[in-house]
Amino acid sequence: MVAWNVRGLNDPIKIKETRVFLQQHGVDFCALFETRVRDHKASNVQKKLGNIWSWEDKYGFSPRGRIWIGWKPGVVSVNVVRKTEQCVMVQVASLEQNHVFSLIVVYGLHTIADRRQLWVDLREMVDNVDFPYLIIGDFNAVSRASDRINGTLVSEAETVDFSDFLMEVGVLEAPCSGAYYSWNNKGTVREAWESTGDTRKLKSVWKKLKAVKEALKRLHSTHYSQAHLKVEEFRTQLENVQTRMASSGDVELHQEEEEDLVNKLRHWSAIEDSILRQKARIRWLTMADANTRFFFNAIKVRKARNNITMLQTATGELVNTRDMIQAEIVGFYTKLMGTRAESLPSIDLYTIRTGRQLSYDARTMLSQSVTHAEIDQALFTIDDNKAPGLDRFNALFIF
């Protein structure tokens, strides 16, 4: 079970890291706070976290998705008991262990006055609970000064409501551990291009592009061929830094290092997805999702589709060796298309002259020269993530 203030979930890289975290830790139930995802986008973002999840939210109280509750239907069942502006009460049943308990998920508002209704709602929920219960979430409040490890000093007015609630209902605060895992909002081509040339302009461009291609191949081999390993490396380093932050209590000491690692993780995760998108030759349409598994599977499917392992000849014989398959394909198309003829019969001019013809306006339109504007329009509509052509350059590089 995880309760996590994700501080926004619109960024594809953050969606990917959230999904990876839930997968790596085997989470069956999660509560995500402050997603900042609008109601009409919620279902799409939730799908990107995995199709095995069911979700409950409370957009009726907030348009920014303040609380999302997710669970795996094959492992647990969840029934909503009550919703308020700042909390949701559900009944959770473990399908494997046959355990039932009540869970209150909290995301408190940001001022003392606004949170007063939260304590009233929580008392009512606790008074009417029929099962063992657990309260999790982000209260946006502290019960003692040591709960805040950075920022302004804690005043008594900030702690009194929370402390009184804990004393009145008799609940105990569970000890916490683990990393904060918070999010902070904080040329090769030129050298290759200028290294060669030719007096003939077109030949010069061809030579320059060839030099750039070789330079980019070396750059990719040296720096980007193991992008997925870089992602795992920086993800592990980030978790280690945040663990040290949690254990030492000194956030400022590691804050700069954490911010640097978050930026590196974003950078390499974007590179990894870009490489996979081009290998898969799938246009990045409305998904906008860093969905590594999807593209790995697409690459496998495309490779299998383009590989011929067996053919059946016209006589029904199965051939499965490379040489036999090649010979069969060549023979098939030779028979289909024939061989080069010494002469061809002339066309029937009478049929052409008396048959259906284009109008004068249509012939004029088809014979017009292609304008520069039309060329530019066609070129600039090519998607940046389309796979490279025969010259191994994609549209983003050229334009």
Rank of each mutant, 00 (worst) to 15 (best):
T159H: 07
G197F: 01
V231L: 00
I375E: 01
V120Y: 03
F162H: 07
D57H: 08
S146A: 10
V90I: 11
P388A: 04
V75P: 01
T354Y: 14
N291L: 12
I325L: 03
L153Y: 10
S146H: 02
N307S: 15
A3V: 12
G60T: 10
L336C: 06
T111P: 05
L219W: 09
A174P: 00
A42N: 03
Y59N: 02
E191F: 14
A304N: 15
V76K: 03
L349F: 13
M365H: 10
H220P: 08
G316N: 02
T286F: 09
R244Q: 13
R283K: 09
G197A: 03
E173W: 09
G331Q: 05
R38N: 02
T152C: 09
F162D: 00
Q117C: 03
T196A: 07
W119H: 03
R66T: 08
S94T: 12
A314Q: 13
R218W: 04
V169A: 01
W55R: 02
A362R: 02
A362M: 06
S146D: 13
K279R: 15
E258P: 01
L9P: 01
V20Y: 02
A145I: 06
N184S: 11
R283S: 04
R353V: 13
G26L: 07
S274C: 10
L253H: 14
Q46W: 01
Y224G: 06
S195G: 04
M337Q: 09
I352W: 12
I347G: 00
S221K: 13
C30K: 00
W284Y: 09
S182L: 06
R218M: 07
P388R: 11
Q368S: 01
T188R: 04
F165W: 02
S369V: 14
S269T: 15
A314N: 08
L166K: 00
W4D: 00
R356D: 08
H25T: 03
S369D: 15
N306E: 08
L122G: 00
H223A: 15
T354R: 10
K208D: 01
T188D: 12
R200P: 00
R283C: 05
M89I: 11
G65W: 00
I329E: 09
V106K: 00
I282E: 12
F139S: 02
R392A: 07
R82P: 01
V75C: 11
K186E: 09
D384L: 05
G151W: 08
N394P: 03
M245H: 03
D130T: 14
F101K: 06
S195L: 06
G316M: 08
T159I: 14
N98Y: 09
S248N: 14
R82K: 13
Y333C: 14
V171H: 04
N5F: 08
E214S: 06
M89P: 05
W68E: 00
T339W: 04
H110I: 07
I52S: 12
E96Y: 14
A246L: 01
L202I: 14
I69M: 03
D348M: 06
N185M: 11
K186S: 11
L32P: 00
D384Y: 05
G151H: 03
L118T: 00
V189E: 01
V189A: 07
G178C: 11
F399A: 12
E239H: 09
V330T: 10
L122I: 06
N297T: 10
R7T: 05
F332I: 04
K230W: 05
K47R: 13
